[in-house]
Design a protein around this nucleic acid. Structure first.
Lengths: 196, 196
DNA sequence: ACCTTTCTGTAGTGATCGATAAAAAATCGG
DNA sequence: CCGATTTTTTATCGATCACTACAGAAAGGT
């Protein structure tokens, strides 16, 4: 009962997500969000409780749209090598989409935050650790299926992939184009030729 | 003539640098800096003009102390492979010094900044690009000296090293220890075995 | 129609941001 | 000692931060 909302929540999240992605958590003010979402502050707070909860919703939206390539790469590719090739390649494309923010919201969305933004920072750290665990699981599966050597250190190789992807995201933020990063990826993935 | 300064400028910069390193440019407030430096705001502004100029002085101090391992590695090691091994290894140690901020001021000191901090952001971007150019120069020298294949793409290999180091810095910020990162570095540097 | 409930818009909360005005204190040349 | 000069201290400045009190507007149910 009562007056229904006059705005589309998903659409509002989408606009907020783009702003958080471009500027990061702390550098994005509620005034900016209010303008981008087309909502007055009270409407935002009624719908999302506070800035941190809104950020979490935006991160979830990012994961389910922009970052949805990752689980697909791990599930659909038959071998670890192909999965990692596709994962990194599609990550690079996601970091350098034309007319969209560069880099990755999950990687650089809440670095360098003050004590008041610790929540958002921890939230993303957890996401990144989860992502690395998924990579390690895929490698472990590859070991069991025989397309990776038995002596492979899955956790360490996953960390190596994480380091690379996080570095790629930083470079994309600095304006490096996709073609260059794809060339770097080729060097990175030469590792898998070594392990055979 | 007039009253002389009662504080040591270099010591003040050192304290400010540690704070910027730990929290990043924007998350470090002048009030925090004032407390850490033991100076009232007007003294800081009289000595450094404004927050951005103070940050630049801190970055220079960081380059000349914490990051001074880099030029030494490039100059003192006889081959590109040894230079890169030492560079990355010492970078990892610098990113994980006990009782000091984790990661690298040059890499994550001014990410996710608002429009008002664009100056500090650009300042670090320039530093990073310069660092990558130095790496490329060292590789180029190695090609001329014969310890790298003639067909080596120096710029691309330098970008690969940069990506790795930036990723390492991000991981160090997330709390990964030096030993783990050194293991990752071994994987990274296996590239140089490939190129022979 | 009514009343209740919820949303919307205006305006403003105290806190904190980077940066200063003004006056007191200290050190110089003479 | 004196006056000139500079640093120090104290107490702010206006702007912006995340957030909200309040009142009017719009949609329920009955």
């Amino acid at each position: 009962m009562g007056r229904p909302r006059s705005f589309d929540t998903e659409n509002a999240i989408q606009h907020a997500m783009l702003l958080f992605w471009e500027r990061g958590y702390e550098a994005t003010s509620m005034a900016d969000l209010s303008a981008a979402m087309g909502l007055n502050p009270p409407s935002i707070y009624a719908a999302f409780k506070n800035k941190e909860m809104l950020f979490q919703k935006c991160v979830e939206a990012y994961v389910e749209s922009i970052a949805s390539y990752a689980p697909r790469a791990f599930e659909e590719e038959p071998t670890v090598e192909l999965a990692m090739q596709r994962f990194i390649s599609e990550a690079i494309e996601a970091f350098t989409i034309h007319d969209q923010p560069k880099g990755c919201l999950l990687i650089s969305g809440a670095t360098n935050c003050s004590k008041g933004s610790q929540g958002a920072q921890d939230f993303l750290t957890t996401y990144r650790q989860g992502s690395e665990a998924v990579i390690a699981d895929r490698i472990q599966r590859g070991i069991q299926e025989g397309d990776m050597p038995l002596e492979t250190n899955a956790a360490l190789l996953a960390k190596y992939i994480s380091v690379t992807v996080q570095g790629m995201a930083a470079q994309a933020r600095d304006g490096v184009d996709a073609a260059t990063l794809q060339e770097v990826a080729k060097i990175t993935l030469a590792q898998f030729n070594l392990s055979k």
